[in-house]
Structure formats: structure tokens, C-alpha cells
């Protein structure tokens, strides 16, 4: 058991919840979960924290009583087979699920101790604080400059043209794209290569200075070289941002993240230090998945 796991549970193999987990589950009405999360869902200094989150699409439950903290300046990866709810959970963190009519979210998710599902929280402003990068690169059919300037303009972050120019330049520089595109800022963003488009989307997300960046399989549409470049970028961004990344590639999770959460059929099965999860999985399902017995 890792030293960092200060709240570690005594006997994970019997699926007895640790004390944080048990307190959450006592408070929740939903006790149908066949799994109690193995490992330590909490961190000492969470940027975001989810407690007893249930998500329903109409009557169908997609997420079952998931509690998870996302620590400051850490990269947490969420892995699991297709349909396990990891993307749905990610989309709860910036309320992107609000745009789906039939989707219903229960439970509590906080960002810096503010409940993001409370009435006083504006979902639109929340999304400026919790940015998102999508599976497929989706630059706007506008110029590279306008792609980056879109967010700052909407939120009034720049008072002058020169400030806006600066935001665009620093965002592109942080995304490692500035040198490649500085001579073609007026060309359409859709004309870039797939990897460049994805980094453009990351730059677009950083341009509004979010606190957290959510990435939903950001490399699944990219070739290995572009993937390596994006992974490098994620590691650099960790200095300033908190990142939650959903990925299908376990190697990627191992390379970029400090903590890993394993989802299975809407349940958070196991969470822990990435190294521990991959070298010493506690739950049989996690072990089966990372050793490739299903997936």
C-alpha cells in the first residue's frame, strides 16, 4: 500500500468501504451498488470533489453512486471499458450533461467548495472555469486567431486588441502551437493537421484561464506522434491546471496521470495512485481489465 494512501482501507479485497466511502454511502439512498469503491477516493487538497453522484438517462442509470476527488495540479485518468460511464462522469464535472434533455444528475459535486449544481451556480460561467477538450478535434470553421479569441471575447477577458493578441499568443504558446502557426493566424483552424487541431482546441480551452481542464479521450483520433506531443503537453499543463482525462489507452493513463480511476458499468470500482493501480490492482475487475482479460 502506498504511503500517500493515508486514508487507505484495511482490507480492500473484501470490498469493505473505507471510512470516507462508508460515510458517503450511509448518507445516500442508493445502496443498490454491487461495488464499493476500492482505494482512496479522497485527496488532502481537492480542486473538485464529487459525492454520491448518480446519473440517469431517462430511466436508465449510467452512473451509480460515484464519489471521487480531483486534486490540485494533478492529472487523474479515468479508464474502463466502453459504456462504463467515465465520459458521462467527466461531463458532469462541467455540467455539459445539461445540454442533454433526458439526462438527470443526482448527488453533490463541488468546485473549490462551491456546489456546481446549486441554484446560485451559473452553468455557463462554470464551463469557463472547467474547460473541456473533446474526443474529436473540433475547431470552429474560423481563423486560428478567432478560434482562440472566441472564449476571451465572450467572457470579456481582454480590454484591448493588444491584450487579446497577448492572450492568443500565450495560449498558443502554452499549447506548443505558437511556432507552428504564428505566420498563419488568419488561416482557418480546420486547415491544420489532426494533431495540430487538437492542440488548437487545448489552446482554446486554456485561453479562458480555466481552473480544471477535462479531456475526453483527447488522443483517440490522433496518430502516435501527435499523441505523444499532446501527452507531453498534458504533462506541462499540470504545473498550472488540474486535469481529468478519460482514456481508452492504459499506456496513456500510465504515462500522463498521477492517479487513476477504474470505472465498470457505471460504478467506480477502484481508484488510487497510477503506479499502484497498474502494478498492484486490488479489485479483481481492475486486475482483469488492466491485464487485458476484457476491455
Amino acid at each position: 500500500m502506498s504511503k500517500a494512501n493515508i486514508y487507505a482501507i484495511e482490507n480492500p479485497v473484501t470490498h469493505q468501504p473505507g471510512w470516507i466511502g462508508s460515510r458517503v454511502q450511509e448518507g445516500s439512498e442508493n445502496t443498490a451498488s454491487p461495488y464499493a469503491t476500492v482505494g482512496n477516493i479522497a485527496v488532502p487538497n481537492p480542486r473538485m470533489s464529487a459525492r454520491s453522484v448518480n446519473v440517469f438517462y431517462d430511466e436508465k442509470q449510467a452512473i451509480n453512486n460515484v464519489s471521487l476527488d480531483i486534486g490540485l495540479n494533478e492529472v487523474i485518468s479515468m479508464i474502463g471499458p466502453s459504456g462504463c460511464g467515465k465520459s458521462t462522469f467527466l461531463r458532469c464535472l462541467n455540467r455539459m450533461n445539461d445540454t442533454i434533455d433526458i439526462c438527470r444528475v443526482e448527488g453533490e459535486i463541488t468546485l473549490q467548495d462551491e456546489n456546481i449544481y446549486s441554484k446560485s451556480m451559473d452553468a455557463v460561467l462554470l464551463r469557463a472555469r472547467v474547460g473541456m477538450v473533446f474526443q474529436k478535434p473540433n475547431p470552429f470553421p474560423k481563423s486560428i486567431y478567432d478560434n482562440i479569441a472566441y472564449g476571451p471575447k465572450i467572457h470579456g477577458l481582454a480590454r484591448s486588441r493588444s491584450e487579446l493578441n497577448e492572450i492568443v499568443e500565450t495560449s498558443l504558446a502554452k499549447a506548443g502551437l505558437w511556432d507552428e502557426v504564428k505566420d498563419r493566424l488568419t488561416k482557418p483552424g480546420t486547415g491544420l493537421s489532426g494533431g495540430q487541431q487538437q492542440r488548437l482546441c487545448i489552446a482554446r480551452a486554456i485561453a479562458v484561464s480555466p481552473e480544471v481542464i477535462l479531456m475526453d479521450e483527447p488522443c483517440s483520433a490522433l496518430d502516435p506522434i501527435a499523441t505523444a506531443r499532446v501527452e507531453e503537453l498534458i504533462d506541462e499543463l499540470r504545473q498550472n491546471y488540474t486535469i481529468a482525462i478519460v482514456t481508452h489507452s492504459m499506456q496513456q493513463a500510465a504515462r500522463v496521470s498521477q492517479r487513476t480511476a477504474y470505472f465498470h458499468l457505471g460504478n467506480l470500482v477502484e481508484v488510487g495512485e497510477t503506479n499502484d493501480i497498474f502494478t498492484n490492482p486490488k479489485h479483481p475487475l481492475t486486475e482483469a481489465y488492466i491485464t487485458g482479460r476484457f476491455g
Binding site: R127, A128, C201
Partner: peptide
């Protein structure tokens, strides 16, 4: 494409 709407909403546009 819905992805363009998602992108815009994801930045915090109304």
C-alpha cells in the same frame, strides 16, 4: 456538427 456546439458551450458560451 454537434461537436461545434459542444466546443462553444464547453468554453462557457451561452
Amino acid at each position: 456538427p454537434q461537436s461545434l456546439r459542444d466546443a462553444s458551450l464547453g468554453i462557457g458560451a451561452t
